[in-house]
Nucleic acid binder design. Structure first.
Length: 716
DNA sequence: GGCATGTGTATTTTT
DNA sequence: TACACATGCC
């Protein structure tokens, strides 16, 4: 057990604890991954069979990394640990035991945008949002957000609306109707959204026999990033721990940044109350950053409310405080970042060991242009994902229709691809094919309609009147496609015929996933060429899809993995850097969670950006924004630069060039000179030298730079 | 009547 | 960039 000696006392305590419930409060950079990996290895060493350990993580990457590290200690056995996200594990369990909760094992999973699209489809069918009926009926993404929040926090719709979406409160009846239809339809079609995966897992764990079976399936349950779990996940954890099971949760309440996904800090704060006899272990020794970085980060957190107080400390002293860099505007901020990145690169820090972090995806837009101009290669995390590209979604929809012929939203997407087919014709075709809408069972109400396009329900009614309903009932829409295809508009005939051929070729199951992707692609490419302006760039994604598919034995698993664990985009504007090439990391703060780099630049440390002015409505939101900054500040090992443009330009005013002066982020403003070194951008410094005007007063006297004056105001 | 096409607008964070 | 909405075309 030599490796145990490498752990510090707190880590060792966590790794070898035998209490039935352990909560590890792991500050940033305190060796959390190592602790969890060691814990897994230790449990295996103590004789726990690896496949009786369940390790729940936030991303699959995290699970893979921990298990790899556990394997380095405990050997290959560690690979048999059940590791993955809540969603991925739910999927795995439900494929086996789903029948117990009325779930067909060949369900398909839709991602958030599919869910929003389905919501939108229903919204249209029910006639909401049709121009005159109501002025401001929530749009699809808002609808989805409301739904998800309601479900995940198990709060009444009326309360969710009142609290988070007051402007939608008047539309509550319509919203309720849409949600009911949405839920019914998913169930009828064997389609699950992300939330359903958790809900069904929870239902499974509460089911009479399977529930006990499930809880008895594992001896130890370990959860990483517990601060970012939601109520349902906490309930699942409680259910999985029935009987003699042991549970360990690891997390840092100071890094809880996913409340918009219904995560709640309460889970981690209340863990000791929920699990009687919990041993709480705090990890406070930071192995990542130099002390001045921690001092500044700690100071930011000191302003926060309820939390497990901890004080990060490091054995790595440094003379250099984090640097607050004031630039005149965003353009100069870009220059400044590029200059400093190259400077560090000259000093021997590879680009890959440097990261630029920001609050929102588009905050790096200008910087990306500047980087491209200067030929500095970069990769952006958390940007547009591979599977979010329209053409990739099209391909997946085609595969999903083959997998689950009742997956309506996929049918809809597929049919709209065809020339001459729009929403109305698509609805008619789906009805004729017998794609389930969930209303067919008879419990569905007749929808009110304000619009003028035929609804799917109505069309289904028409089909039954013709006797088609009975004829098709119980038969797969795929069979209907081949044996009794509906008539389509003349313009659509050619592509529709091609679609039928595709279905005929792929239906049997004679083709493996990669071969099917290839076949689907043969159908798709002509359509693709018609729809998109620059097919060449997008074509590479299709290649990649085929490559990924080659690694799978079953189509079902391939499709599910793509939705539950989407590969990051590789086709970035700057061109995909080769894997062995060096490149700078650009990332949203959210996506930077758990990562570390030698040098970190934080962009836009201005009020309105951090905290985002989208999130300053309540004290809770502001607290979360603070934690976000804290997460960003605790990423670097050696050097932290925080950038602050003094003014922002706003377009779209008839007066032309309008700008406003920014305020330094309210979280940083109270930090004194002892914690942050304040610098001006190089451009400002050079100007001053040319002037020969050192010192605050004379700059104001020159009358040239209002920004400089301001800069002096706050830096003095 | 329904589809394709063009224009204006708003855009946080993501399993 | 993607979406909602308005307008012209089959």
């Amino acid at each position: 057990m030599d490796w145990l000696k490498q752990l510090n006392p707190a880590q060792l305590e966590a790794v070898t604890a035998t209490d039935r419930a352990v909560l590890v409060i792991a500050g940033a950079g305190t060796g959390k991954t190592r602790t969890l990996a060691s814990r897994v290895a230790w449990l295996i060493g103590q004789g726990t069979p690896a496949d009786r350990i369940l390790l729940l993580t936030f991303t699959r990457r995290a699970a893979a990394e921990m298990l790899a590290r556990a394997a380095a200690i405990a050997g290959a056995e560690a690979a048999r640990v059940w590791g993955g996200t809540f969603h991925a594990i739910a999927n795995r369990l439900l494929r086996h035991h789903g029948r117990a909760v009325g779930l067909s094992p060949d369900f398909t999973v839709m991602d958030q945008s599919d869910a929003a699209d389905l919501m939108n489809l229903i919204r249209g069918e029910l006639g909401h949002g049709k121009a005159k009926s109501q002025k401001r009926f929530p749009r699809k993404n808002t609808l989805f957000d409301i739904y998800s929040r309601t479900v995940n926090s198990r709060t009444r719709l009326s309360q969710v609306l009142a609290r988070f979406f007051p402007w939608c409160a008047d539309s509550i009846e319509g919203i309720r109707e849409i949600f009911e239809t949405y839920a019914r339809r998913k169930a009828g079609q064997s389609v699950l959204d992300y939330d359903d995966l958790l809900l069904y897992w929870k239902a499974l764990s509460a089911a009479p026999e399977v529930g006990e079976l499930l809880a008895a399936r594992f001896d130890h349950v370990l959860v990483d990033e517990y601060q970012d779990t939601n109520l349902i996940q906490a309930e699942i954890l409680a259910a999985m721990r029935r009987g003699g099971r042991n549970v360990m949760a690891v997390g840092d309440d100071a890094q809880s940044i996913y409340s918009f996904r219904s995560a709640t800090v309460r889970n981690i704060l209340d863990f000791p109350a929920q699990f009687e006899g919990t041993r709480v272990v705090k990890l406070e020794q930071n192995y990542r950053s130099v002390q001045p970085i921690l001092d500044a980060a700690n100071a930011v957190m000191d302003q926060a409310g309820e939390r497990f107080t901890k004080n990060l400390f490091s054995n790595r002293p440094s003379e250099q405080r984090p640097v607050l860099v004031a630039s005149r505007d965003e353009a100069e901020q870009c220059t400044e970042v590029c200059d400093r990145v190259l400077e560090k690169h000259e000093e021997g820090v590879p680009l890959k060991q440097q990261a630029v972090l920001f609050r929102a995806g588009h905050h790096s837009d200008q910087l990306e242009v500047e980087l491209a101009r200067r030929n500095i290669p970069f990769v952006k995390y958390g940007g547009l994902k591979f599977v979010e590209a329209a053409h990739v979604k099209d391909m997946i929809a085609l595969l999903r229709v083959l997998e689950n012929p009742h997956d309506q939203i996929s049918w809809y997407r597929v049919l709209l691809l065809l020339e001459g087919i729009g929403p109305a014709t698509a609805g008619r075709i789906m009805a004729a094919l017998g794609v389930r809408t969930g209303a067919g069972a008879g419990q569905g109400r007749t929808p009110e309609r304000g619009g003028d396009s035929p609804t799917t329900e109505e069309a289904t009614g028409a089909a039954s009147a013709l006797g088609l309903g009975e004829l098709l009932d119980g038969r797969s829409p795929l069979a209907a496609m081949l044996e009794s295809p509906p008539t389509v508009p003349p313009a659509a005939r050619k592509e529709f015929a091609a679609l039928r051929e595709l279905i005929a070729d792929c239906r049997g199951g004679g083709l493996g996933p990669a071969a099917q992707v290839e076949r689907v692609r043969r159908f798709y490419e002509p359509v693709f060429a018609r729809i998109y302006d620059n097919p060449a760039v997008r074509l590479r994604d299709l290649d990649q899809l085929e490559t990924i598919a080659a690694g799978y034995r079953s189509r079902s698993q391939f499709i599910t993995d793509l939705t539950l664990d989407p590969p990051a985009s590789t086709q970035d504007l700057a061109g995909a850097p080769l894997l062995d090439e060096d490149y700078l990391i650009l990332s949203t703060i959210h996506s930077a969670k758990g990562c570390e780099w030698d040098v970190v630049h934080i962009l836009h440390a201005a009020d309105g950006m951090i905290p985002s002015d989208m999130a300053t409505g309540s004290p809770e939101e502001i607290d979360e924004e603070r934690r976000l900054l804290y997460v960003a500040m605790t990423r670097p090992r050696n050097a932290l630069y925080i950038h602050f443009p003094l003014r922002y330009y706003h377009s779209g005013s008839r007066l032309g060039d309008v700008h406003s002066y920014a305020q330094l982020s309210r979280f940083l403003a109270p930090l004194g000179k002892g914690l942050l070194e304040r610098q001006r951008s190089k451009a400002v410094r050079e100007e001053r030298e040319e002037d020969g005007s050192e010192g605050a007063g004379s700059a104001a006297g020159s009358g040239r730079s209002v920004q400089e004056m301001l800069s002096d105001l706050w830096s003095g």
